[in-house]
C-alpha cells in the first residue's frame, strides 16, 4: 500500500489540524514555543511624536514576535459632562489591522477597540481629575510702546499674576484622549499586544497646557472692569506649543495590568498566546486575563475551560505581570 508522506511545511498547509496534533504530541508548538511560553515584548517610546499640527502627546511602538503595533495618542477638549460622576476616564482607541484590504473596519478591529476602551475605563487607570483643563490666560502686553509681547500666565507657574486675572472662563472643560493603533503582520489574537502598546503610550503621554486669550491690558485691574462687552466673544481654548512646560499625565500606575491570553486545544492542552492559523482554528476555548501582580483587572472567557486550567492560567499571568519590567 502506498503511504502518502509530506514535508512538515506542506503538511502544515494541507492539513493544519493534523500538523498541530503531531506537534502537540511531541510537546512542541508549530511556532516552536513551549506551551506556556509567551512571546517577548519590545517597546520603543515616543518615536511618533513628530508632527506639529495635531498634537501627538504620547506614542509607542511595540513588537512581539513578528507583530508590530504603532500607537499614537492625541488630545482634544470637551465640555465637562456634569451628569457623568465617574472618577475615572478612558481613552478612545481605534485599532487598524493591516491585511492588504481596504474598507470598513472588521469585527476584530471593532471588538478590540471597544474592549480596550472598556478595560482602561474599568481598571481605573486615568483619573478624570488629571484630564481637567485649568486654562492659563494669555495677556498682550504692549506697555504703551507699540511693541507687543504675549505672556501666558498659568495658575501653578505664575500664581501671583494669575490671581488678578479674569479666569472664570472655560473652566468646565476637560481633555479627551484618542488613540490610533496600527497593527502590522498579525499572526494571532491581538489583544495582548494592543493593550501593551496602549498602556505604554499612555505612560508616555505629556499633556500640553491650554490657555485662553485675555483681551485686556495687564495694567488694567481686571476686577474693577465693569464692562465685559469688549472681551473676545469667540472664546476658545488654545494649545500652548511650548514643549518645556508639558505635564505628564498622572496615572494610577498601580492599576496598570498586563494582559495574557490563552487558548485550549484538544480540550486538554493550555497554550499561551496563540500563534498561527492552525492554533487559532483549533483553539475553540479562549481566555484573556489582565492582571497586576496581586490584583485581577480583567478576565474574559469563551468556550468551556476546565477549572484547574483557569487556575493555572491566572497563576501564569500573575507571575508574568510580576516579572514584567
Amino acid at each position: 500500500m502506498l503511504q502518502l508522506s509530506f514535508l512538515p511545511d506542506v503538511l502544515a498547509r494541507v492539513a493544519p489540524d493534523i500538523s498541530l496534533d503531531r506537534h502537540i504530541a511531541e510537546g512542541l508548538r508549530p511556532c516552536l514555543r513551549e506551551f506556556y511560553e509567551f512571546k517577548p515584548l519590545k517597546t520603543t517610546l515616543g518615536a511618533l511624536n513628530t508632527s506639529d499640527g495635531i498634537p501627538v502627546v504620547g506614542s509607542s511602538i511595540v513588537k512581539s514576535g513578528s507583530t508590530t503595533v504603532f500607537c499614537g495618542i492625541s488630545v482634544g477638549t470637551v465640555e465637562r459632562d456634569t451628569t457623568n460622576t465617574s472618577k475615572y476616564a478612558s481613552i478612545y482607541p481605534v485599532v487598524e489591522v493591516s491585511r492588504g484590504r481596504s474598507g470598513a473596519p472588521t469585527d476584530e478591529e471593532m471588538i478590540l477597540s471597544e474592549s480596550l476602551y472598556e478595560l482602561v475605563l474599568h481598571s481605573r487607570i486615568i483619573p478624570r481629575e488629571s484630564l481637567r483643563v485649568t486654562p492659563g490666560v494669555a495677556v498682550i502686553n504692549d506697555r504703551g510702546t507699540g511693541h507687543q509681547s504675549v505672556l501666558i500666565y498659568y495658575p501653578d507657574i505664575n500664581p501671583d499674576e494669575y490671581e488678578i486675572l479674569d479666569k472664570q472662563r472655560m473652566v468646565n472643560h476637560e481633555m479627551v484622549l484618542t488613540a490610533h493603533l496600527k497593527v502590522l503582520s498579525r499572526d494571532g489574537p491581538l489583544f495582548d499586544i494592543c493593550h501593551k502598546a496602549l498602556v505604554e503610550a499612555l505612560l508616555n503621554v505629556r499633556l500640553p497646557r491650554m490657555y485662553i486669550n485675555d483681551t485686556v491690558d495687564i495694567r488694567v485691574p481686571v476686577r474693577s472692569r465693569g464692562n465685559f462687552g469688549h472681551l473676545n466673544s469667540q472664546q476658545q481654548l488654545n494649545i500652548d506649543a511650548n514643549a518645556e512646560i508639558l505635564k505628564p499625565l498622572e496615572l494610577e500606575t498601580a492599576n496598570i495590568g498586563l494582559s495574557s491570553s490563552f487558548g485550549v486545544v484538544n480540550q486538554s492542552v493550555l497554550l499561551a498566546q496563540l500563534e498561527g492559523d492552525a492554533e487559532e482554528t483549533a483553539a475553540t476555548s479562549r481566555m484573556n486575563i489582565i492582571t497586576t501582580k496581586d490584583k485581577l483587572q480583567g478576565f474574559s472567557l469563551s468556550g468551556n475551560i476546565d477549572r484547574n486550567m483557569i487556575k493555572k492560567a491566572i497563576e501564569l499571568s500573575q507571575l508574568r505581570a510580576e516579572l514584567a519590567p
Binding site: L48, T50, S51, D52, G53, I54, V56, S59, F70, G72, S74, H180, K182
Partner: peptide, 8 residues
C-alpha cells in the same frame, strides 16, 4: 495612507 497623526 497617512497615519492620522502625520500632519506635515
Amino acid at each position: 495612507k497617512f497615519l492620522p497623526y502625520v500632519t506635515k
